[in-house]
């Protein structure tokens, strides 16, 4: 008895959904439009977009940029400092691990941003050398530095805890953040050597919406 009811209900549901195909595809079109609008960069920034920060940054190519130029792509963001011996190499390894799970994804859809916590030592040149050393290709990776106070602001928004020691070491939390195309944090992976699955799923989910 029960089985029959369920089966017939499901069958009917299938019919109804089928009839609505057209409506659904209209919906898809709307989202596509929205995605295109945001990619073009003309869209107004949402309230929670990190790109509301107006500070200026220098990348490893020594170009001056604003964070808003990251808009339109899914971005993975982590904070490092290049003289770090313990965790930072491992964060880069974690990022690469996530990257390798995204092989089928177009490179232009996902960017990776490394922000230094140590602007005194990490000049654009130093960042460039670090990128070369770690084989971080510039079509995917951007390494950024700025004034200490700008870094502090971004760190606060990324929920980072960090502290400079007199000996030049920086104690810091290890967080990889996933930003959507609008620059909002949608997922954070806290801790080193975590299973990247959840983060990868979050990225793929965002890409589907684009």
């Amino acid at each position: 008895m029960m089985k029959r009811y369920t089966a017939s209900a499901l069958l009917l549901l299938a019919i109804v959904i089928g009839a609505c195909q057209q409506g659904e595809s209209i919906d898809n079109l709307e989202t596509e439009k929205a995605a295109i609008a945001s990619v073009s960069g003309t869209a107004e920034l949402s309230d929670m977009s990190l790109y509301n920060l107006e500070s200026e940054w220098q990348n490893q190519e020594n170009e001056t940029v604003k964070l808003q130029h990251l808009q339109g792509k899914v971005q993975l963001v982590a904070m490092i400092y290049t003289s770090c011996e313990y965790a930072c190499p491992r964060i880069v390894a974690d990022l690469k691990r996530i990257e390798s799970s995204l092989e089928e994804v177009k490179r232009e859809d996902v960017g990776i941003v490394l922000v230094t916590m140590d602007p005194v030592r990490d000049t654009p040149e130093k960042l460039s050398a670090f990128a070369a050393e770690n084989k971080l290709s510039s079509d995917r990776y951007e390494l950024l530095t700025s004034k200490q106070e700008n870094i502090q602001e971004l760190a606060a928004l990324l929920n980072m805890k960090y502290k400079m020691s007199p000996n030049g070491e920086i104690a810091h939390s290890n967080i990889i953040s996933v930003l959507n195309a609008q620059g909002e944090i949608v997922h954070q992976q806290e801790g080193l050597g975590k299973d990247p699955n959840e983060t990868v799923e979050a990225i793929k989910g965002l890409l589907k919406k684009m």
Binding site: C84, A87, S165, E169, A171, H172, S173, N174, L192, K194
Partner: peptide, 10 residues
């Protein structure tokens, strides 16, 4: 502190 969560906290 968990070394996985915080680097260099000692």
């Amino acid at each position: 502190l968990d070394r996985q969560l915080f680097c260099g906290a000692g």
